Computed example of a mutant assay.
Amino acid sequence: MIWDLFEIAAGLALLVVAGDFLVRGAVNMSLRLGIPALIVGLTVVAFGTSAPELMVSVTAVLDGVPGIALGNVVGSNTANILLVLGLPAIIAVIRTDEHDMRKSYLTMLATALLFIAICFLGPIGWGDALVLLAALTLMLWDQITDALAHRAEREDTPLEGADLHMRWTRIAFFVGLGLVGLPLGADFLVDGATDIARAYGISEAVIGLTLVAVGTSLPELATSITAAVKGRADVALGNVVGSNIFNLLCIIGIAGLVGPMAVPAQMLRLDLWVMLGVTLLIAPFIFYHLPFRRTVGFGFVGLYAAYVVALMSGAGA
Score class of each variant (00 low, 15 high):
M1S: 14
W3L: 10
L5R: 02
L12Q: 02
A18Y: 12
G19F: 13
F21Q: 09
G25W: 05
V27M: 01
I39S: 08
V45I: 14
V45F: 06
A51T: 13
A51Q: 10
P52E: 11
M55W: 14
V58I: 15
L62T: 11
G64E: 09
P66V: 06
A79C: 11
V84H: 13
V84T: 15
I91R: 03
A92G: 04
R95F: 02
T96G: 00
D100T: 05
D100A: 03
M101I: 01
R102S: 05
L106Y: 12
P123S: 11
I124S: 02
A129Q: 05
W141G: 00
Q143N: 15
Q143V: 11
E153Q: 09
T157I: 15
L159K: 13
R167F: 03
R167M: 05
W168L: 06
F174Y: 12
V180T: 04
G181P: 00
A186E: 10
F188N: 04
A199D: 02
T210V: 05
L211F: 03
V212K: 02
P219H: 14
L221P: 05
T223M: 12
S224N: 14
A228T: 06
R232P: 00
V241S: 01
S243V: 00
L248C: 06
A255R: 11
L257E: 08
V263D: 10
V263N: 07
L268Q: 11
L270I: 15
D271A: 07
L272C: 08
W273S: 04
V274R: 00
T279E: 05
I282C: 11
I282W: 13
P284C: 05
F285N: 10
T295S: 06
V296T: 09
V301P: 07
A305L: 14
G316V: 15
